[in-house]
Design a protein around this nucleic acid. Structure first.
Lengths: 152, 152
DNA sequence: GTTAAAATGTAGCATTGGCTACAGAAAATC
DNA sequence: GATTTTCTGTAGCCAATGCTACATTTTAAC
């Protein structure tokens, strides 16, 4: 290391260890890769419950993407064992998919409830929860639950 | 619509309008595309402050990615006017980059503080905030701030 | 000042998740 | 039942973000 760099490095501010920080970002990237799956599974479950079936075009319209994109993502769901579909028939969740959907929906509700409880307007809470939910750990969820119970 | 489908559609469960839902997902996708930028900008600002300079290798190590990936992302930062760098020199933020870094850091702190305030353990709060922060709107942030103030 | 090590940058590849355009099947209409 | 509309699926493109491997430059060590 050059004298110049050594000198500058004498600083007062402390950062977390690089390895700790790297791990955090890795986890966050992982969460992002499952976020899409979770959104699809939750939506499919909603549609099957309310409409009796989940069709690619409806899924696409609700997610705001083209039907081609939706079909590609559905293929990924099938690859990962979360959904099934036959040619020209609707999409349905496997038991694993249903389990995931249930967990995702419960988590979504908890996040919205917590946001509202700390004063976030309902509509805003719904919007923000859409992105936030995928990054809330079970530990944090448990804390949310306790917090909500404690203030009834 | 076939009789079969029409029948099934008579259901009790109500979903939000498709357009509303689509808009939410679109916003969330947008937030995701800026999340990476925000992470880099915040980290570069941290490194410049604590080490005097932000070098691609350090950035890569802290984000847990290869240096090649970091360099590519830094190129994007430069394209978007958030950072500058010369060949074989460190990376620095433009005024816009510094402004973004300041906002991102303030938001990060608020999110961590809120999580802790509702009972999430510190370490967990730090981890979850890494993913959550990119999806918290200004409206929600303001609510967080009020909430924290109200319970001192 | 040479040489060895480390950092930086480039090239090329894979995957993901968008898109449009086209082809084929099913459903609705007449 | 023929026709038109809608839905479904495929193909091929692009950009983003990861990677490894290699080339080059800077820094450190002798």
């Amino acid at each position: 290391m050059s004298p110049k760099r050594a000198l500058i490095a004498q600083s007062s501010i402390e950062l977390p260890a690089a390895s700790v920080q790297a791990q955090r970002f890795e986890k966050t990237r992982l969460a992002q890769s499952t976020a899409l799956l979770e959104d699809y599974v939750e939506l499919i479950d909603d549609l099957v419950t309310s409409e009796g079936e989940a069709r690619p075009t409806d899924i696409a319209r609700r997610l705001g993407v083209s039907h081609a994109t939706a079909i590609k993502s559905i293929a990924r769901l099938k690859r990962e064992g979360l959904a099934t579909s036959k040619l020209y028939r609707g999409v349905f969740l496997t038991p694993e998919g249903q389990g995931l959907a249930a967990r995702v929906r419960a988590r979504h509700r908890l996040v919205v409830d917590l946001l509202v409880a700390v004063g976030v307007p309902q509509q805003c809470a719904e919007q923000d929860a859409e992105g936030i939910e995928h990054h809330v750990s079970d530990t944090a969820l448990a804390a949310f639950s306790r917090f909500l119970k404690s203030r009834t």
